[in-house]
Simulated assay, not measured.
Amino acid sequence: MTLNGDGVDSTGGWATQQVLNAFLDRFYPAAPAAPTVPIATAPITTGLDRYTGDYRSTRTSRSNLTKAAALMGSLHVTAADGRLTVTGPVTRDPEAEETHWEQIEPGLFQQVGGTARIAFPTGADGAVTALLTDADPTVAYQPLAWYQAPGLHRITALAGLAVLALTLLGWTVGALVRLVRRRGRAGQPAVRLLGAAVSTLLLAATACFALLTADPNELNQTLFLADSPLLTVVPVLVLAALALTAPMLVCTVLAWRRRWWGVPGRLHYTALTLASLLLLLLAGAYDLAGTSALDLLG
């Protein structure tokens, strides 16, 4: 049985599994007293920490912004109570966001209460080199360093965007209040304008990127046909923000040396600069800038 697409929310693969399950249940039903999935041997509950960490599919783009799919499609593995817990799409069931596994042989695990299996090949030095799943033999997951973890990237991006958005909101409200009260402009208006410009560019790039990747199937079509102006707009916005962040970094240093504003104001501008730099680092890592030369995370 085969399908000509992934289906809504990528449920196509699970549909074929459901047909197979229904066929077996109808023509080859299990005895009522038999366990659903007998474990071949007693679970091995030791040495599980070596398998924990984050894993990313090797079928991840290295040359365009579809690499951002790794933000949601990667796996996170933890160990507790003699079992592994995998968060992410490791089985064909799209609703199984978290699954539990028991080790039946060294490096081989069977799903608790299910039929799926995963395996962890190791190298000559004993280090884990991949995570494999029988749900899709065409996919392997490679272990990631801590700084490559998608979970860390998501938190960093949300925190950075919050700093930028709150800064724009605060400065806008402050400018309106000063205008109404006729108190003139805030100190170092050009420096603030620079920070506002970078914040606006990065927020706009994020919004355009969200529109572009809202539907994975449409994104694939867009990349093949190159029929969306957003494919050009996102890299331009990111590169423009990068160009303006360099002088912003200089202004941050000058703010402390020349004591612009008070200490809270300097701390805020420093946080704004740091948030912008981190967002640009992530934009380079996920190829939002349109060039892999800015990928410093791998």
Rank of each mutant, 00 (worst) to 15 (best):
L3P: 14
N4R: 10
D9I: 00
S10I: 05
G12F: 12
A15G: 05
A15I: 08
A22H: 11
A22Y: 14
A34C: 01
G47F: 01
T52L: 02
G53I: 04
S57D: 09
S57Y: 02
R59A: 09
S61R: 13
S61A: 15
S63K: 06
K67E: 02
L71A: 13
L75R: 08
A79S: 04
D81S: 14
T87N: 07
E97M: 12
E97G: 11
W101Q: 05
E105L: 10
Q110T: 05
F120V: 02
G123D: 12
T129N: 05
A130Q: 12
L132M: 07
V139N: 03
Q142S: 12
L144Y: 08
W146I: 06
Y147A: 10
G151E: 11
R154F: 01
T156G: 06
A157S: 14
A165M: 05
L169Y: 15
G170W: 05
V173I: 14
L176I: 10
R183K: 12
G184N: 11
A190F: 06
L193P: 00
L193A: 14
S199H: 07
L202R: 03
L202S: 02
A210D: 09
T213E: 04
N220C: 00
T222H: 13
D227F: 03
V236L: 13
L239T: 12
L239W: 11
T245G: 03
V253K: 01
P264V: 01
L267T: 11
Y269A: 07
T270N: 05
T270Y: 02
T270G: 08
L274K: 00
A283L: 00
A283V: 02
G284S: 13
A289Q: 04
S292R: 13
L297P: 07
